[in-house]
């Protein structure tokens, strides 16, 4: 008999599931005076705080005045709304939906996403954007070198791998979402396109997409949880649409990295370390927090400069915790 004698982990206090269900139901049914949520459609984690937690199979409400939204269902033999995911209850007017604590990205129109080319097909690419289905990037939705006004030709169709080939990273926008939930992307702007000279990382579930530029590094936070940290490139001044072709050269589809100095590499690594520390601590990752964490890491390095416990450039462990604490502290103050 495989007996191992280990110090047992503290037993989990047994909580009866109905205890919470009852209190949650009360809070819902007593909301006769209809609190209309003024928050945006996508709640940040901050907004979740006030909301009650439900788990799969839990009856959210049996009041027929509510409509069911995402994350809920109505069993065939009753009229009460039952949760299907573990998450927080979100009320929008009369619509009840559950925001899962963690879920894969679902594309929505207008999202800024970072993707990796998975397949090259005829007249379109299939892009991995960490959604349930691969996204599609049609050849007609990219900027062709030589200007947007140039006609798409058969030669372009044959040369598709010259623009994007398997494994290439790109930043794009979701143009439309099909009935099955798969996304169609486009890169028809100078802001979007192929990515190079940088560092890729993936975290799960970002709330907003950002594109931050500053100093030596550019950071792109895709809504789908993919992050790109790259050397800063001087953006061409706003060009008139008619003159766009002059700035769209073949070099935007180059796969060759430029020479990057050690100082820039160090800055890229610092940003990546800050993001990793935030993820490890379970804090939200957005533009604000990344900037704060970055500043905190600089401050911390300045304080401990030359000391024994400086800890080098590694931003994990105790140092990572300090950085997150400082970033959170400056966020609340």
């Amino acid at each position: 008999m495989p007996f191992t004698i280990l110090p047992p982990a503290p037993a989990i206090p047994f909580n009866h599931p109905h205890h919470y269900a009852a209190s949650d139901n009360d809070s819902l049914s007593s909301a006769d005076e209809m609190d209309i949520d003024t928050t945006t459609a996508r709640p940040t984690k901050r907004a979740r705080l006030s909301r009650s937690l439900v788990t799969p199979g839990e009856t959210v409400t049996s009041d027929p005045q509510w409509m069911r939204g995402h994350g809920t269902y109505i069993p065939s033999d009753s009229t009460s709304i039952v949760s299907t995911v573990a998450g927080t209850v979100l009320k929008t007017n009369k619509l009840l939906s559950i925001t899962p604590l963690r879920a894969r990205y679902t594309p929505e129109i207008g999202d800024l996403v970072i993707g990796r080319i998975a397949e090259v097909q005829s007249r379109r690419w299939r892009v991995d954007i960490s959604a349930p289905l691969l996204g599609a990037l049609p050849l007609s939705a990219i900027n062709l070198p030589g200007g947007i006004l140039r006609k798409r030709t058969a030669v372009d169709e044959l040369n598709m791998r010259a623009f994007f080939s398997e494994g290439d990273l790109l930043v794009a926008e979701v143009q439309s979402v099909f009935a099955d939930g798969s996304a169609s992307l486009h890169t028809r702007s100078l802001k979007y396109g192929k990515l190079r000279n940088g560092y890729f990382m993936a975290v799960s579930g970002l709330q907003f997409g950002y594109r931050a530029r500053g100093g030596e590094v550019d950071v792109v936070l895709g809504v789908n949880g993919f992050i790109w940290i790259a050397r800063h490139v001087e953006q061409a001044k706003d060009v008139a649409v008619t003159r766009l072709e002059e700035s769209v050269s073949l070099s935007i589809y180059s796969s060759q990295n430029d020479e990057i100095g050690p100082q820039t590499r160090r800055e890229i690594a610092r940003v990546a370390g800050c993001i990793r520390a935030l993820v490890e601590a379970g804090a939200r990752v957005d533009e604000d927090m990344v900037v704060r964490a970055y500043e905190a890491s600089l401050e911390l390095d300045f304080e401990t400069e030359g000391r024994e416990d400086a800890g080098g450039e590694f931003l994990g462990g105790e140092k990572g915790k300090r950085i997150v604490e400082m970033a959170l502290g400056s966020a609340t103050s």
């Binding site: 979740r48 937690l53 788990t55 939200r284």
Partner: peptide, 21 residues
Amino acid sequence: VRGILDAVVRAHGRRMVEEGV
């Protein structure tokens, strides 16, 4: 068993909600 697993999910969920300040 459901009661025990539910307690695990709830404890984790509460921690996530609280930590994501």
